[in-house]
């Protein structure tokens, strides 16, 4: 029997792909680690939940929306931290934030002891959890401190695929990453579109205009303007390979947060009296590539 494909190549490709976006945080962490090496720390049965949500009448999650797993990537010791975007919008509260900070701290300590340990952070986050407000702010500062300390030893890779995207405090965590991997479906932005519209008006930022929003903070734009290092399809295998390849590449010549001369030059070149499009910034960056 012969089979004549009637579907286009694109559709066939799509159907053979396994979506990363559709995976929950635990399965994402498992996916990014080498087969059979996933070992979860502070898993749901440890029941370290948010102490702040139930007293406000909000149902907690047993892992507080953050999965931490030790394992291997490309045969090397690694830790993967995956935020669950469906639980409280991937917001950072005390427990999930501390899990993240401590994972980075322990990875750094292993590196200091001569056990080279890599770190990946799979982000889906709307930012700080408002029900834990200032506790979240403190914990996020501690996450940053550990990220800056760890990235001296190993590339620290942030993966943002959507659907939630990466906003608020965690967008700065993406800024601190050595490398950022994004899909077209992902968004990376300090301020959420609705918040900007609320603060500055519709003329400044029309949150309901999805093509506009993606033209500012979508993965394709972030990749084209150098805020992401790799743009991948929503394919679990391709994303895993992208992470592995970035670790193989090793430390970059210059961290993105050290590019202050470049960014100051770029900012100086812009006419800030007018609003810009995503394309304006792509062009402006090309003119000031170095």
């Amino acid at each position: 029997m012969t089979f004549t494909p009637t579907l286009s190549k694109d559709v066939l490709e799509l159907s053979s792909r396994r979506s990363y976006i559709e995976l929950n945080a635990r399965d994402r962490a498992r996916q990014l680690l080498d087969d059979g090496t996933f070992h979860e720390l502070l898993g749901p049965f440890d029941r370290v939940e948010s102490p702040w949500l139930p007293i406000q009448g909000i149902v907690p999650q047993a892992d507080d929306g953050c999965v931490v797993a030790k394992g291997k990537i490309d045969g090397q010791p690694a830790v993967v931290i995956a935020m669950e975007g469906k639980f409280q919008g991937g917001s950072i509260g005390e427990v999930c934030g501390m899990k993240m900070a401590e994972a980075f701290r322990l990875a750094r300590q292993d590196n200091e002891k001569g056990i080279p340990t890599r770190a990946v952070l799979s982000l889906e986050s709307g930012g700080v959890r408002l029900q834990e407000a200032n506790m979240g702010e403190l914990v996020i500062a501690e996450i940053y401190a550990e990220m800056v300390a760890l990235r001296k030893y190993t590339p620290l890779i942030v993966v943002i695929t959507g659907p939630t995207g990466c906003f608020g405090g965690m967008s700065l965590a993406a800024g601190l990453a050595t490398y950022v991997v994004m899909t077209r479906q992902a968004r990376l932005s300090m301020n959420g579109p609705e918040v900007i519209e609320q603060e500055a008006g519709k003329a400044e930022f029309e949150a309901s205009n999805k093509p506009f929003v993606w033209s500012v903070n979508g993965g394709a734009q972030r990749y084209a303007t150098g805020f992401a290092d790799v743009l991948v399809e929503d394919d679990a295998v391709a994303i895993t390979a992208a992470v592995r390849d970035l670790f193989r590449k090793g430390q970059p010549a210059q961290l993105r947060t050290d590019q202050y001369e470049l960014f100051i030059k770029r900012l100086s070149s812009l006419d800030t009296s007018k609003q810009w499009t995503g394309e304006d910034i792509r062009n402006a960056w090309k003119e000031n590539a170095q």
Binding site: Y144, L172, G175, L176, M190, I196, Q259, R266, L270, W276
Partner: peptide, 27 residues
């Protein structure tokens, strides 16, 4: 932080991350 279209287009998340990294490295 500043809330604006220009800010997001040029990556305010990275500008903020950069000064955080500078303070952390100074410490």
């Amino acid at each position: 932080q500043a809330y604006g279209r220009r800010e997001e287009l040029v990556g305010i998340h990275l500008a903020a991350a950069a000064i955080i990294a500078a303070y952390a490295d100074a410490r």
